[in-house]
Design a protein around this nucleic acid. Structure first.
Lengths: 142, 142
DNA sequence: ATCCACCTTCCTACGATGGGAAGGTAAAGC
DNA sequence: GCTTTACCTTCCCATCGTAGGAAGGTGGAT
């Protein structure tokens, strides 16, 4: 039975899985080492073997990374993803928390930009040494 | 009450410099190790000794970090700061480049937020398992 | 003399990724 | 067959900025 549908489940080495998932072979091994993905089968000679499902998980991880989720968050997302009876509220909660973190980071960076813009505007940017940017950075008091 | 020896350069140990500059003792040693600040004098017993100028440099570094400059950028800023004949154009150039980097990062983060917001809006967030967030992350194609 | 706060150096870790060495293996060409 | 080439394996190191801790020495006050 299994042999008759062998063509459907074509398996591949780590390089193939890397190309197919967009995750580098290096990182695939790393994800396995930290337990983010389970240990896959090996050939007699020790090569890792991946099937379409494994690649699917790796793609899931890659897309989660693109959205800025951390490994720890992705671990939770993967569990929810694999759990067909999860409540969507849990997923939404994770996403909203992540959005909050991202927005906090954004406002911190924006504050830096704003402060620098003000200083840069007041800086002539010519051959003279006077510069409010250095002035501000070197101020004795805060 | 420092009137009696007002102009005296009161020196301190690394702990005092840390408090005065807002940079941890740990990081002061690190900055010295990577050559960001010069090696300071030592007492006979090997304790590092800091004066007001040293503390001033450390405060400069801390304020630069607050504005998000990297160690490499701070190294350049310190050189410009100490060089009384620098052209302000160089400082401004560094600042503008840094602003560009920050804004690039901000827009990347903002793109993540936007994508997540759209998905989260479409997620019921109730007891049912259906969730477009996981759906999107698990999509077969990109 | 004792105590405690401080100092020293050295090692470890984080989080996510990449580089590279040293060596084994698969599959192709000749 | 034998060689080449491309791939695989594990293991160690580097990044960047910061922090924690161990083991041991020093300074000043009690």
């Amino acid at each position: 039975m299994k042999a008759s549908i062998a063509a459907a489940e074509k398996s591949m080495n780590i390089g193939g899985a890397a190309k197919a998932s967009g995750v580098s072979a290096k990182m695939i091994r790393h994800y396995e080492a930290i337990g983010l993905v389970p240990k896959v089968r090996r050939t007699d000679s020790g090569y890792r073997t991946y099937d379409a499902n494994d690649v699917h998980s790796l793609s899931f991880i890659r897309r989660s990374r693109v959205l800025g989720f951390s490994m720890k968050e992705i671990k939770k997302l993967l569990n929810l993803w694999r759990n067909k009876t999860r409540p969507s509220s849990e997923v939404k909660k994770l996403a909203l928390e992540h959005i909050r973190d991202l927005e906090k980071k954004i406002s911190e960076l924006q504050a830096m930009v704003d402060a620098l813009r003000i200083l840069a505007l007041k800086c002539n940017g010519d051959d003279r040494p006077e510069c409010p940017i250095l002035g501000k950075l070197g101020e004795i008091k805060d």
